[in-house]
């Protein structure tokens, strides 16, 4: 009997970053748990595009950070029997490369926080059209899930059947039910604005200026409490058509105005 291929979730870094819930798989021996995201997505395998913002490599392991403008994906490729090909792919990537990555998510906990790591199956440089294509489709997938959750929230007692009857797929309906159960108070409006701001030129224009964009990004991406990292900011700025020089000028100007401060080297916080 052929084994069913594990579903590949096209999701934004922000959706994974905001995830707090895991679902064990007792029926499968030694299987790593699924991650349940705030949109109810049941994640094991992910596919995403972004810019390489950080890379550390040695013989046994290569770590790469990829930012899609909404959040980061942390990738670790090991020099094991099964991972050599993937490590070679990751080794070939350089900082600021535009990449497509598909891989399996594993999670670990530290000081009460859940962190996610992606073990890559493929990691390949792509062009800008592929990046835009992924963003557009991933936004569409996320939006459909958001609308399904909103529908379920607005009609208390809704079941997956009710959501399906409104035109959503089985998977979207199940995701909506999971999201209702696991993340009843998640701010969908804020999430939708955050991802749309990175994706759509029209939404980008809604930022009164590049300054607002930088301030908002620093505020939203201080993920470990030690300040937003310059590399992430740079990648997000480039996605938003802000050059590195412009970014440096804006950071200086925001610092002089007392709106941000550099907590430590290349780490920023909003005051």
């Amino acid at each position: 009997m052929t084994r069913k291929r594990e579903f590949t979730n096209w999701i934004f870094g922000r959706e994974l970053r905001d995830s707090r819930e895991l679902e064990e798989r007792p029926d499968e021996e030694r299987a790593k748990p699924y991650v349940i995201t705030p949109l109810g997505t049941r994640v094991r395998r992910v596919l995403f595009c972004g810019l390489v913002s950080q890379k550390n490599a040695d013989e046994s392991m290569t770590r790469v950070t990829v930012t899609d403008g909404t959040g980061n994906f942390y990738i670790s490729a090991f020099n094991s029997d099964f991972g050599m090909q993937a490590k070679a792919m990751v080794d070939a990537l350089e900082i600021n490369d535009q990449v497509l990555v598909m891989g399996r998510v594993s999670s670990y906990q530290n000081e009460g926080k859940t962190y996610f790591n992606v073990n890559p199956e493929i990691a390949i440089k792509v062009d800008s059209v592929s990046m835009d294509y992924w963003r557009m489709k991933t936004l569409h997938i996320a939006r459909r899930k958001i609308y399904a959750i909103r529908m379920a929230r607005n009609r208390p007692g809704s079941t997956a059947t009710d959501v399906k009857a409104a035109g959503y797929s089985d998977l979207e309906a199940e995701s909506a039910m999971k999201a209702m159960e696991k993340y009843p108070d998640y701010d969908l409006q804020e999430f939708e604005s955050a991802i749309a701001a990175q994706i759509q030129p029209a939404a980008k224009e809604e930022h009164k200026s590049s300054k607002d964009f930088i301030l908002q990004y620093i505020q939203a991406n201080d993920t470990d409490g030690r300040g937003c990292r310059y590399e992430d900011l740079l990648a997000a700025s480039q996605n938003a058509s802000i050059s590195q020089n412009e970014l440096d000028d804006l950071l200086n100007s925001l610092g002089s105005d007392g709106e941000i401060f550099e907590v430590s080297l290349k780490r920023y916080k909003v005051i």
């Binding site: 294509y133 557009m136 489709k137």
Partner: peptide
């Protein structure tokens, strides 16, 4: 064929119709 900007426009219009 590789995805190009013309195809993206078509796709965007189709996906936009969902909302």
């Amino acid at each position: 064929n590789y995805v190009d900007t013309d195809f993206m426009k078509k796709l965007e219009a189709r996906m936009g119709a969902d909302f």
